[in-house]
Design a protein around this nucleic acid. Structure first.
Lengths: 338, 338
DNA sequence: TTGTACGCGTTATCAC
DNA sequence: GTGATAACGCGTACAA
């Protein structure tokens, strides 16, 4: 025999009160002290829980947020989601998670899927979504928050990381320590973050009046393989760099692997700065310098902004946050100033 | 002006038909050819979409599945989720994802949260959940599928990996190649998978009539640090192993890092078998042997089983699948048979 | 094949 | 403070 969930009606019957009163109690309206006791007893006894579906039908809210990310197999993205989910859940929202497998057309269709599911809001790490979809969502008063990547020409809340200065500061450290030839391993240039990180690299060169040698710029996929190949190519240059900056986590792993494999010592043979995973940087000896993104802050800021929008608080719309990274020091930079 | 979603009523008005007819059309019941055309035109024109909330209220189904995993910061888990989500989404289900941060009490409360959200089914990678909760869910006809870990004394569908034989086969390869002292780096023994993997190690020793040296068994957290420490301890033994088996991905990364750092060569100085991430194994030179879990298959099997249960197909309940791993060869085992 | 009428569990609007 | 009642949008007898 299966326990059918009790309804407001049941509680009403049990207490002798009306459904209206029960509903009010549930929604925080004051009721007579005596009735309060009674209702609480009934709820306990009948194991009553609000039917969110029925409530949603009335209120037009599902207490559900859609989160759409490029891939579930990338720890940077999923870590952000982890924090988002925690904060939202604390406020009673559940998180419908979708990934689009780095595929724009999937990105579009999953966005539609979420809209069809009547989510109350959407958090999106975008790739190449059709901006009209986002506009339409906003028109329907479904707030959308972009994360990590900007979509030019779209008025929308967005939480970013200051990638340009992250990169600038990292490379600057190398320059300050006397490095004239700094290699950079970066992601595809149609990707907002990768582009920004390369721009930081270029700008710091300009600011220090140093030429940019295109041969030192290695682009590849944001994967282990990309980092691995990048290092390989850099080491095989006639005039190889004395320092290398890897600009995302997977590439950092690949780069370290390639260096170890060739017995290239850090920092004696080459100086190195990695990206993102502090734990990894701490495990490898010598600990390497690493640019750490404020993952927790990204997630929490995003969730909190969305919660505000869900409360119809549209203060400082559109809000553009640019969170700061941290350069955590290690022992992977050789001082070669003469 | 915001586009309010059209309802069945609107479509009925537009076509001059009744809401019942529209509803039937939507649910695949035949209608007059002429009316079909008309309805389709109206749906297109009005941009009508079924209100899943209202439908859920009637059908008592939310077309939503809860997925509860130990951590969103572990790529093994999230990769499984990725496949689950894809399959479910193809069948119109959305996935509410929660993680419990490796914390049993959170595991319990998030399970409750999902039940309160009236999900149609739950997929759980369990740690120490109160089994009564699962029983109660099953009684309420909410199917639950366990993944990766067994809960003893609970009748429930479960999708497992044959960890014992995975470990057995890996270590056997080392033994066949003449290794008498094989180190194993494994996770905490209150964890189902870690325990199974160690049992495989022990069983193959028994089968080959080899003593098990407790000093060669290093336990730690399933993290990079655990693998790193494990290798370190093994290398510092008076009588160190000639081969090492790391039993999860993070530990494999840590182990490789530690070996590289000490310039211990694979396989000249030590033979090695890793776990899980084929891409990593292929990137490191020499490619190392690696036990690969059928992640895609785990996800798809899980999703498909749940879909069957959601259709009230309770054939071969409880279903216990034990999926096979694959030992992918590399060049990390030295043949030291004399 | 189509239409009428009602109910799903909740909230909101009134009166009282 | 409380209660009766009408929505919310859809599915489904049952009747036509």
């Amino acid at each position: 025999m299966m326990a059918i969930a009790a309804t407001i009606k049941d509680v009403a019957k049990y207490t002798g009160l009306s459904t209206a009163t029960i509903s009010k109690y549930i929604n925080g309206v004051r009721v007579k002290e005596k009735n309060r006791k009674l209702i609480e007893e009934a709820i306990e006894k009948l194991d009553f829980r609000v039917n969110e579906i029925a409530r949603g039908l009335k209120t037009n809210r599902t207490m559900t947020v859609g989160v759409l990310i490029p891939s579930l197999e990338n720890i940077f993205f999923t870590s952000i989601v982890s924090h988002i989910e925690r904060v939202l859940q604390e406020h009673g929202y559940s998180t419908i998670l979708c990934d689009y497998n780095q595929n724009c057309s999937l990105e579009n269709s999953k966005f539609d899927f979420l809209m069809n599911k009547s989510v109350d809001g959407i958090i999106l790490i975008p790739l190449g979504i059709d901006k009209e979809r986002i506009k339409k969502a906003l028109e329907r008063e479904v707030p959308v928050i972009l994360v990590d990547r900007l979509l030019k020409g779209l008025e929308c809340d967005v939480i970013l990381v200051d990638n340009l200065n992250a990169s600038y500061d990292a490379v600057e450290q190398l320059i300050i320590k006397g490095h004239k030839r700094v290699g950079i391993i970066c992601g595809p240039q149609n990707l907002y973050t990768a582009e920004e990180r390369l721009r930081g690299y270029i700008r710091v060169h300009e600011d220090y009046n140093m030429p940019v040698d295109q041969a030192l710029i290695r682009m590849g996929e944001n994967e282990i393989q990309g980092g691995y190949n990048g290092i390989k190519e850099l080491l095989e240059l006639e005039n190889p760099p004395t320092a290398v900056f890897a600009t995302n986590y997977e590439m950092t792993v690949g780069a370290i692997m390639a260096l170890n494999e060739r017995n290239v010592r850090i920092p004696e043979d080459i100086s190195f700065i990695g990206f993102d995973n502090l734990q990894l940087a701490k495990v490898v000896k010598p600990n390497f310098h690493v640019v750490v993104q404020p993952i927790r802050q990204i997630g929490e800021t995003t969730a909190n902004l969305l919660l505000r929008r869900l409360k119809k608080d549209y203060g400082n719309y559109p809000s553009i946050s640019r969170l700061k990274t941290k350069l955590v020091s290690g022992y992977s930079i050789a001082d070669i100033t003469v």
